[in-house]
């Protein structure tokens, strides 16, 4: 565990807590893409099946359980508990355009042709694009609340920090996982436009609003 990895994990944890707090305190899921959150629930479920087959550490297990659990709570909030506030008219990204190609790719390009390994690969690929429905929603409505922006910034930072972690691990531990690195690069690149808006607007006290 190096500092990049730890701060990355904490950033991921923070993103989820920010999102849950936003929903709970405002009693609303306005501006949040339910589709992205369903994709994240699929990502965590398919990636952490190794909870049943291998034990790494208490830290590892508790984070996995937390990520899976909170992803389902989030989906429940959006589609049940705070459903009247869910803006489905603006959450129109076609997720089958992500799931089908990503599933095919996981089947073709993986480290080992076994069920758990293919599901892990699927999860890594899917995570890299899972935020697209949310970014699509922000661009469609032309705005994002500050709290949603903080959530997106923390979530995007997590994988960017993992990139630094992988560079560190490559040099100091000889560890290198091409699938994770390529997907991590794609994931981070997708956030670049948002990062720019966040730094130039949100940090100066303005909310993100795009020209119509």
């Amino acid at each position: 565990m190096n500092i990049f990895r730890l701060v990355g994990d904490m950033s991921h944890l923070l993103a989820i807590i920010i999102l849950l707090m936003k929903m709970w305190k405002s009693r609303s899921v306005a501006g949040i893409s339910g589709k992205s959150q369903i994709l994240f629930a699929i990502v965590f479920t398919t990636r952490y099946l190794d909870l049943f087959t291998s034990f790494v550490s208490i830290y590892n297990t508790s984070m996995k359980v937390f990520f899976i659990g909170t992803s389902y709570v989030t989906v429940y909030f959006i589609y049940q508990h705070f459903k009247p506030t869910y803006d489905s008219n603006h959450d129109t990204f076609r997720v089958e355009f992500l799931i089908v190609p990503v599933g095919g790719l996981a089947f073709l390009v993986n480290h080992e042709f076994s069920l758990l390994e293919i599901l892990w690969t699927f999860s890594i690929y899917l995570e890299s694009v899972a935020i697209l429905p949310q970014l699509f929603m922000v661009s469609k409505t032309g705005e994002a609340e500050s709290i949603t922006s903080h959530y997106l910034f923390a979530l995007g930072s997590y994988r960017a920090l993992y990139l630094l972690n992988w560079i560190y691990r490559y040099y100091f531990e000889g560890f290198f996982d091409l699938i994770a690195v390529v997907a991590g690069c794609v994931q981070t690149i997708l956030y670049c436009d948002f990062f720019y808006l966040y730094i130039t607007k949100v940090l100066k006290g303005k909310k993100i609003s795009l020209p119509a």
Binding site: R5, D50, S54, V56, H111, W120, Y170, G174, F175, F176
Partner: peptide
């Protein structure tokens, strides 16, 4: 480097 069987990352 090799891809590891046990994945310690999240």
């Amino acid at each position: 480097g090799e891809h590891e069987e046990t994945k310690d990352e999240l």
